[in-house]
Design a protein around this nucleic acid. Structure first.
Length: 540
DNA sequence: CTTCCTTTGAAGACC
DNA sequence: GGTCTTCAAAGGAAG
């Protein structure tokens, strides 16, 4: 079933006409909420109130994004010395624990995995395959020196063997940020699925991704090499020589761009890799069933492109980990799931758009690839039932079905959870596409602006039912708060901007936090977790 | 060492 | 066409 698209969907017009990526909301949300939220708590609270009021007014006063009053000073975010200092102070208070973004004074760069995925030179680290968003915001404000890192640093690939097989070598070309996801081509509001293939607004015909839209993270398949425009064209000769898996080409042969700059798609062969086709069956013809099977197994594993939430997770995980004492991914993911719902539609739209581009690129690079190819590749997961099914019989059998008892990583007063989630998003956080609409993420959104193609989400009763189920599910499963159960409809009908609800809840129930928050940093993290732009708007 | 957990979204399978 | 299943990432926990 098609997933709920992000904000704006059908009303946003042609992609190229869309608001550049660094629209005011993005900029402020990222910068403000995460930058200055580090500062004074009281100030933040007042800012929260202020923001809530702003959002409330905005939600009631306009029907479209375009009608929303433009921010007085869009790019202010972290350019405020106060904010920067607050960040500095906060980091000092963190005593080194804080593993913030790598760029001092630019905490919303969201390059959380430079330590795990990418090394400072932008190269891929063993921890992950892709970091897609690292250049989005840096492109906007960050000094060039901070963005363009030393490209001659050694690739991290050799540091570990934990690298995805094919989509592995996403070393970032230092210049890639300048040609990838540029604001000219990034459309924050594009729906996630129904725009693919992208329609050229001018010609009305599907158009291939512009080079600037192509993520540099995918190695090229032989069939797609020729299709890749010039942005990746320099790789073609090398890739052609490598049959399929560009990462298997000797780094000596292709490790460097003609300019001498390592490229993301090139990884050291030392890295654990699946055998290439070239290396696996020289003979090729006479294959016993066993060898066929063998070859089948040796086929390069092309992973699915990441969806919007996965992209979001990749970006935000490190931040959450830094904010929380939690380390288990399951717990982190719960937090991220909640935060995802608390994102504004604009913010979510960015990820939907990125995901769309990822899929687009993926299909270009691997024209013959199908998600089916990966079916059964993983060990069968033990999950017998989907959440919606579980909802129906959670109480009776949930615990018994799981190998491991259900772990409520995020109790109601979970230290690192965002208040938004615990008070609202929890209601509809279970994995159902409808949640995006039901999500409180877009307080200012209205039906006209946020027309969602997904029919499911347009049915109020369906949403209510789902939410009720979700609440029940959560309730039985996670001892969720009963208040969530009791009032799904207000949330669904949005009489109150969620931000208001959330922030009100936050501000009116601070006593619930200290008991669960282990440290002032965690307390700040709770506030910081708000994806809204709270404090960068100039005080009135 | 392998699988599970946990999240959302996309896509394929299935009815 | 609707529903269900699988897989994407992540890394600690558990088997």
């Amino acid at each position: 079933m098609p997933q709920l698209p992000p904000a704006g969907g059908d009303d946003l017009g042609a992609p190229d006409e869309l608001i550049p990526f660094q629209d005011e909301g993005d900029e402020q949300d990222k910068g403000a909420g995460r930058g200055s939220a580090h500062g004074d708590l009281d100030e933040l609270k007042s800012s929260l109130v202020h923001e809530s009021e702003n959002r409330r007014a905005s939600a009631s006063g306009s029907d479209s994004e375009a009608e929303r009053p433009p921010p007085p000073q869009p790019r202010e975010s972290f350019q405020k010395p106060r904010d920067y200092l607050a960040e500095v102070v906060r980091r000092q208070q963190d005593g080194g624990f804080f593993k913030g973004p790598p760029y001092p004074g630019y905490p919303f760069l969201m390059i959380p995995e430079l330590g795990s995925t990418y090394l400072p030179n932008g190269a891929l680290s063993p921890g992950g395959a892709r970091t897609y968003l690292q250049m989005k915001w840096p492109l906007l404000d960050v000094p060039a020196g901070a963005t363009l890192k030393d490209s001659r640093s050694p690739s991290p690939a050799h540091l570990s063997n934990k690298v995805p097989v094919v989509q592995h070598a996403h070393h970032m070309h230092p210049l890639t940020p300048l040609i990838t996801y540029s604001s000219d081509h990034f459309s924050p509001g594009s729906p996630p699925s129904h725009l693919s293939p992208e329609i050229d607004p001018k010609t009305g015909i599907p158009r291939p991704p512009h080079p600037s839209e192509l993520s540099p993270y995918y190695p090229l398949s032989p069939g797609a090499v020729g299709q890749i425009p010039h942005a990746l064209g320099w790789l073609v000769p090398h890739l052609m020589s490598s049959r399929f898996s560009p990462h298997m080409v000797s780094p000596a042969a292709h490790g460097l761009h003609p300019s001498g700059i390592p490229h993301p798609t090139i990884v050291s062969p030392i890295v654990k890799q699946e055998p290439t086709q070239a290396s696996m069956s020289p003979g090729g013809n006479s294959k016993s069933p066993g060898s066929v099977k063998k070859e089948e197994e040796k086929k390069p594993h092309i992973k699915k492109p990441l969806n919007a939430f996965m992209l979001y997770m990749k970006e935000m995980r490190a931040k959450v980990v830094a904010e929380c004492t939690l380390k288990e991914s399951a717990a982190i993911n719960q937090i991220l799931g909640r935060r995802w719902h608390s994102l504004s539609r604009e913010e979510q739209a960015k990820y939907y758009e990125l995901a769309r581009k990822e899929r687009q690129l993926h299909s270009q690079l691997y024209p013959t690839w199908s998600a089916r190819d990966n079916y059964g590749k993983k060990k069968k997961r033990k999950r017998e039932k989907q959440p919606q099914q579980q909802i129906q019989d959670t109480e009776s059998s949930l615990a018994s079905k799981s190998k491991k008892p259900y772990v409520q990583y995020l109790p109601i007063e979970k230290p690192c959870d965002s208040p938004a989630s615990s008070h609202g998003s929890m209601l509809d956080s279970p994995a159902t596409p409808s949640t995006a609409l039901a999500s409180p993420a877009a307080p200012a959104a209205t039906h006209s602006e946020q027309a969602q193609p997904l029919s499911l989400t347009t049915k109020p009763e369906a949403r209510a039912q789902l939410s009720l189920h979700s609440a029940a599910f959560l309730s039985s499963k996670a001892a969720s708060s009963s208040s969530s159960l009791s009032s799904p409809s207000p949330l669904l009908s949005r009489p109150i901007p969620f931000a208001t609800m959330t922030h009100t809840a936050l501000l009116t129930s601070p006593p619930s936090f200290p008991a669960a928050i282990p440290s002032p940093q965690a307390a700040l993290a709770v506030l910081q977790a708000q994806p809204l732009s709270l404090v960068t708007k100039p005080a009135d």
